[in-house]
Computed example of a mutant assay.
Amino acid sequence: MIYGLVLLRLYDEALKVFHDTRNGGVKPEAITFASTSMFTSSALQLGKEVHQYTVDNKLENEEVVPTALFDMHSTTYGSHGNALEAIYLFQQMEKSETIPDRVAFLALLFACSHGGLVNEGRQYFDQMRVRYGIDPTIDHYSCATHLLGRSGRVHGACDILIQMPIKADVGLLGALFSACSQHGKVELDEEVVELLL
């Protein structure tokens, strides 16, 4: 039920059900916790509360929980400007031999993008393919493009889009076009227009 409410973006209701479940003596399963990580990124206190609950109930070693914890924390810290903490959490996850998945990398790229950690974000974007064999989705490409475009590295952002094996959507190309204009890279505007066609 919590997962369904999260998907419908009814976060307050999802939080209420989580509290009611906990207060009613019902022990949520690990997958319930994983779904709550989706809405805790906008509520730092709730994230801490949910994390503590998993520790108290010995759920932190369940299969889906380490990645969900990383996702929750890195998105939360990233959106609060603490991308270095997200990188630290990712490194701890790797040390624990938990294999990161697409969601973990997306959260990490998001944190690097919002924290201005361009070199680190680019390194992790490359690492997901080379070290872990994970093919980026349009969301990963979008994060990497925003990361480079915002920092003025529009040539690098353009290269990513040209080389990506999937078709870029209009929103992604529009963001790149804006970055080209914002940083005075008018010569790249034509390449972006060609990608749109």
Rank of each mutant, 00 (worst) to 15 (best):
I2R: 11
E13N: 07
A14W: 08
F18P: 03
H19Q: 08
D20H: 05
T21S: 14
R22Q: 13
R22V: 15
G25V: 11
V26M: 15
E29L: 14
T32W: 09
F33D: 07
A34S: 09
S35I: 06
T40V: 12
T40K: 04
S41W: 10
A43L: 13
A43S: 13
A43M: 05
L46K: 04
H51N: 06
H51R: 10
Q52T: 10
Y53R: 06
T54D: 05
V55G: 00
V55A: 01
E63C: 08
A68R: 09
S74Q: 07
T76K: 04
T76R: 06
S79G: 05
G81H: 06
L84S: 13
Y88R: 11
L89G: 07
Q92L: 09
Q92K: 10
E94M: 14
S96L: 14
T98I: 15
T98K: 09
T98R: 11
I99R: 13
P100W: 02
D101H: 00
R102T: 13
R102C: 12
V103N: 03
A104H: 07
F105E: 06
C112A: 02
G115N: 09
G116N: 11
G121M: 09
Q127H: 06
M128S: 08
M128D: 02
I134M: 03
T137L: 15
D139A: 14
H140Y: 04
Y141A: 10
C143T: 03
H146G: 08
L147A: 04
L148P: 03
G149C: 05
S151Y: 06
G152N: 01
R153A: 09
G156R: 08
G156V: 01
C158D: 05
D159S: 07
L161M: 11
P165T: 10
V170K: 15
A175E: 03
F177Y: 12
Q182K: 13
Q182E: 12
H183Q: 00
L188H: 09
E191H: 15
V193H: 10
E194W: 11
